Deep mutational scan, measured.
Amino acid sequence: CKVCGDVASGFHYGVHACEGCKGFFRRSIQQNIQYKKCLKNENCSIMRMNRNRCQQCRFKKCLSVGMSR
């Protein structure tokens, strides 16, 4: 997965992504979610083991690796 490094389940929203990141991105855009501000200057490292800790940084990384509708 380009977002968290887990095993990708396919090509989702323009990038190779796992089911977790695919679902997270889908919910984020469909529900237009505004995530809580990052407590670490929006510089969190997103990996499989910690991908749920900072939703703002995870969504930012989804966009930075090329995920789009």
Rank of each mutant, 00 (worst) to 15 (best):
K2E: 10
K2F: 06
K2L: 06
K2H: 00
C4N: 07
C4P: 01
C4W: 01
G5W: 04
G5V: 01
G5I: 01
G5N: 04
D6P: 03
V7C: 06
G10D: 07
H12K: 00
H12M: 00
H12N: 10
Y13F: 13
Y13N: 11
Y13H: 10
Y13E: 11
Y13C: 06
Y13A: 07
G14T: 01
H16V: 12
H16D: 15
H16S: 12
A17K: 00
A17P: 00
A17Q: 00
A17D: 04
A17Y: 00
A17I: 04
A17L: 04
C18M: 06
E19Q: 03
E19F: 08
E19G: 04
G20C: 11
G20D: 15
G23D: 14
F24K: 00
F24P: 06
F25Y: 06
F25P: 01
R26H: 08
R26N: 14
R26K: 08
R27M: 13
R27S: 06
S28G: 03
S28T: 15
I29A: 03
I29M: 10
I29N: 12
I29S: 03
Q30D: 13
Q30F: 04
Q30Y: 02
Q31V: 04
Q31T: 09
N32V: 04
N32S: 08
N32L: 03
N32W: 01
N32G: 11
N32C: 05
I33L: 11
I33D: 03
I33W: 04
I33N: 08
I33G: 08
I33M: 08
K36V: 09
K37F: 01
K37H: 09
C38Q: 02
C38G: 01
L39P: 11
L39A: 13
K40D: 14
K40Q: 14
N41E: 11
E42A: 10
E42W: 04
N43D: 10
N43S: 09
N43Y: 01
N43T: 10
C44S: 14
S45F: 15
I46N: 12
I46T: 08
M47C: 07
M49T: 14
M49Y: 14
N50G: 08
N50L: 07
N50W: 06
N50Y: 09
R51G: 12
R51W: 11
R51K: 13
N52D: 14
N52F: 08
R53V: 14
R53M: 13
R53W: 14
R53N: 15
C54K: 10
C54Y: 05
C54I: 00
C54F: 00
C54V: 03
Q55T: 02
Q55R: 07
Q55C: 09
Q55Y: 11
Q56F: 12
Q56T: 12
C57A: 03
C57P: 00
C57R: 00
C57V: 00
R58Q: 12
R58E: 07
R58H: 15
R58K: 06
F59W: 09
F59E: 07
F59C: 02
K60P: 00
K61Q: 04
C62V: 04
C62Y: 06
C62Q: 01
L63Y: 06
L63G: 00
V65P: 01
V65E: 10
V65I: 09
G66K: 08
G66T: 01
M67C: 05
M67D: 13
M67V: 02
M67E: 06
S68P: 02
S68F: 05
R69M: 15
R69N: 13
R69L: 14
